[in-house]
Design a binder for these strands. Structure first.
Lengths: 227, 227
DNA sequence: TCTAAAATTTAGCCTTGCCTAATCTTATAT
DNA sequence: ATATAAGATTAGGCAAGGCTAAATTTTAGA
């Protein structure tokens, strides 16, 4: 009964936790904290403690009390499978179902737990094996490899540099709206006019010579790469 | 807390039961039995009794102990929403993902619980608002209406009649294989050569003058309409 | 009609996930 | 160096859904 639990495909809840740990680690480079995961999944901290212990039993995370959790190799593979599904579904919804760039995120959270690997791979084929989703996030390969990410938040840019938008945080719908409305989307070129340390405002100019002053929250939500 | 349960969208388990009751009633015209639902969902009879009581509380079925359950109007609407999703997803998988006619059924069971109505309607549009799925089953409209079904199993045909295949039972993969391999699919025309009451074998000839002798189990799985 | 088999329900228990309240640990600020 | 705040864990519950075994009702056969 124990090794059965090992071989079963993780429940949708387990998957959500793995993805949260994966994404928090990507941001901070560190172990995922109870609090961080709780906030991301809108559950209580107690539930996270509880789940961390179970994930460790299942061999999906390395966990030490009061120290947070990091993914094991198996946990990381699992998380990447879900990320792959999520991003392909988003791309499908955008390109074939006519959803707005901003609307794409929400429902994919649910669907990613319901589709099989076979479905995912056929979807990838239908879409022409894209390597980035509509927000600019890289899509993991079917083999579980993920492009190394050399992008950084616009808030850390230096004045005068020329940058390409690589991705936009997809957690906040209002921010997605803002960027979407102004066509500040992955692939666009920006020139940094000013980075004001005083208040964190970053002033950029786009390819059409439009100038935008972005406050720190916005500047932290847009990721760029040196061009 | 009680009326919240009323307004919530039913859990995936609840939906599975509603669909099972719906489909059993369609077959037998009668209340769905505990045993029938248990067999269809691969669950113990005790679980079904339990769930019938809960479904009644939720106002989704009419249920009397030892007498089986029938859907209420609300229960029927819920079931039809799921059936609509299921059949549209099957159609999508066949037409856009290149699945075989036989493979289509299985995964849709899981997906139908994860997609929203909005997704479903956009999918319908992408597919050109089909009114039948690949097995020939009618797709309920977004408003919850379903074509009246005047088809009957081939096992009840009379010798000499000309019939069109309307649908094929999709529960048994081996039978789907058999029919699929021989191109005995919805839309094809058949002429009944002989109906042998002795052993239930039905002998038919298709449009290409191929002749098939179908035993009772197969003849009961193929539905036809007078042409 | 009466009895045995089949179907159904009840009782009692388990697991997964989630919650709140109370208790620890660790980190921070004097 | 230590008090306190912040973060994490434990304890104890709850609801959904499932199961088995035992009891009950219905149905069918002699």
């Amino acid at each position: 009964m124990n090794d059965l639990a090992q071989s079963r495909s993780p429940s949708s809840s387990v998957g959500d936790y793995l993805k949260a740990v994966f994404e928090l680690a990507a941001d901070s480079g560190d172990a995922a904290s109870t609090k961080g995961v709780a906030a991301r999944l809108s559950v209580s901290a107690a539930s996270v403690s509880n789940m961390f212990a179970r994930l460790q039993e299942m061999g999906l995370v390395e966990y030490e009390r009061y120290r947070g959790a990091t993914l094991t190799e198996r946990g990381r593979r699992e998380a990447l499978r879900l990320v792959r599904r999520h991003r392909l579904i988003e791309t499908f919804r955008l390109e074939h179902l006519g959803y707005d760039w901003q609307e794409v995120h929400a429902e994919a959270e649910r669907l990613e737990h319901a589709v099989s690997d076979a479905f995912t791979d056929r979807l990838a084929e239908l879409l022409g094996h894209p390597d980035h989703d509509p927000h600019g996030d890289p899509i993991p390969s079917a083999e579980g490899t993920l492009e190394v990410d050399d992008s950084f938040p616009l808030s850390e840019a230096v004045a005068g540099s020329r940058l390409r938008i690589s991705k936009v945080r997809d957690e906040d719908a209002a921010m997605l709206d803002y960027f979407g409305d102004r066509n500040l989307v992955p692939g666009r070129l920006l020139t940094v006019r000013e980075v004001r340390t005083l208040d964190g405002v970053v002033i950029v100019e786009d390819e059409d010579a439009e100038v935008y002053a972005l406050g720190e929250p916005l500047a932290r939500s847009m990721f760029v790469r040196d061009e």
